[in-house]
Design a protein around this nucleic acid. Structure first.
Lengths: 230, 230
DNA sequence: GTCTATACACAGATAGAC
DNA sequence: GTCTATCTGTGTATAGAC
């Protein structure tokens, strides 16, 4: 799969994101017209990600957000009860879409090597399509209340486990070498995250998302496969 | 080398850190007695790292810092002209010690494989000994003025280049395989950084710093070496 | 060299007109 | 549903006593 194909599939999800935020937060959002909510939530979230990823969520004032989103401060508070809840909405939405897409894309009839490649590409392509979200989620966890932090760590572990299970399956079916699978899965996560954490570097080197994904897939396969091109 | 050996060597540096901060900032620091400065700078920096790594530098108020460091707000401002300069002192000190230690430990009479192992272990062990500094530097870059950000990116590239040069040398001397060395160096950095970014994970799994370093060294060697245990 | 008390700016949040 | 004007708390920073 190439990024361009992934993006098409992803677009279907994307259109649904803001509608979903609306329905998940009916009780919190004071505005009632769905169209209006969807339109303004998009403005608000984009502005929040833009400012926060530049100087941090904490450093973004509501006045900043008001100006960047084009809504007045009074209007903003019709969409969330307080700044903290805005952060929470963002984080929850990020983790929702993450787990949903992985569930949808990893079919059980794939063999281990296929699954591994699909999981790697899904992770990288998704983090490319939603780069500001991923960056935000990574950078702002530590500034959240402990309960939310733990949820986020659980998310990290869950997504690591996807890879761990694939490695284990591949080993049991004798297509992957015997390695410390837990450790490999953990390190693989680090490689995948580097794509959205160090965007400036890869952009400066003109490395495309497909090139990055190809390289990771190839490297990991040559490292793990018992019968491989290596 | 084991971590316990590294730590002994590192202690010599550590004692010098705060004295160096003092001499580098004579013009800024209003207090004149060196002993007092060294003692209080240590309190201030430790408190800053502790609070900032929990909830972010921006979210740390001067009142927080005053309480945690045991110095009054008035006293704090005798050591730095403003909060922003405090952040700058921390970042500069971190990058100073980083480059110094690497320079000291990579001897030119080492062969490529030795150099690679030494560089990997130095990176991991140093980030272990100064974990709060590394974590802070990583997390707070984006909240700094652009000029400082660029310095920090230059630091990242410089430290990546250390690995790149070693890989290239090993390839030219025909001990390492032909790989995309730039890319490998970049990904290796990501693996090394994971140690101080995801400490909670490795601690929960009771993976020691030596085990982590061993694993990375072994994995990278088996991946690169032409004549290896693999 | 360090403290307490205070100045002043700006933060998040809300009331009430439209 | 959105705006402007305003409340109140907290932020950084400093003045001046000790």
């Amino acid at each position: 799969m190439r990024y361009i194909e992934f993006k098409k599939i992803f677009m279907d999800y994307k259109d649904a994101i803001y509608q979903e935020i609306y329905s998940e937060n009916r009780d919190i959002i004071r505005v009632k017209k769905e169209n209006t909510v969807v339109r303004n939530l998009e403005k608000i979230f984009e502005a929040t990600l833009k400012i926060s990823n530049k100087k941090g969520f904490q450093a973004m004032s509501m006045r900043n957000l008001s100006q960047e989103s084009g809504l007045s401060m009074g209007a903003l508070y019709a969409y969330f009860p307080g700044k903290e809840e805005l952060l929470e909405m963002l984080q929850r939405q990020h983790s929702n879409i993450m787990s949903r897409i992985f569930e949808d894309r990893l079919k059980n009839n794939m063999d281990a090597a296929e699954k591994l490649e699909t999981a790697i590409r899904t992770h990288i392509y998704l983090s490319e399509a939603m780069q500001p979200w991923f960056y935000f989620a990574y950078m702002e966890v530590k500034n959240m209340p402990r309960a939310k932090q733990e949820k986020s760590m659980a998310g990290e572990l869950a997504s690591e486990k996807i890879f761990y299970d694939i490695l284990l399956e591949g080993f049991e079916k004798k297509v992957f070498r015997d390695k410390n699978h837990q450790m490999i899965a953990s390190l693989l996560k680090a490689l995948l995250q580097d794509w959205y954490l160090k965007r400036w570097k890869y952009r400066a080197r003109k490395i495309s998302v497909d090139e990055y994904a190809d390289f990771i897939v190839e490297t990991v396969k040559s490292f793990l496969l018992l019968t491989g091109p290596n």
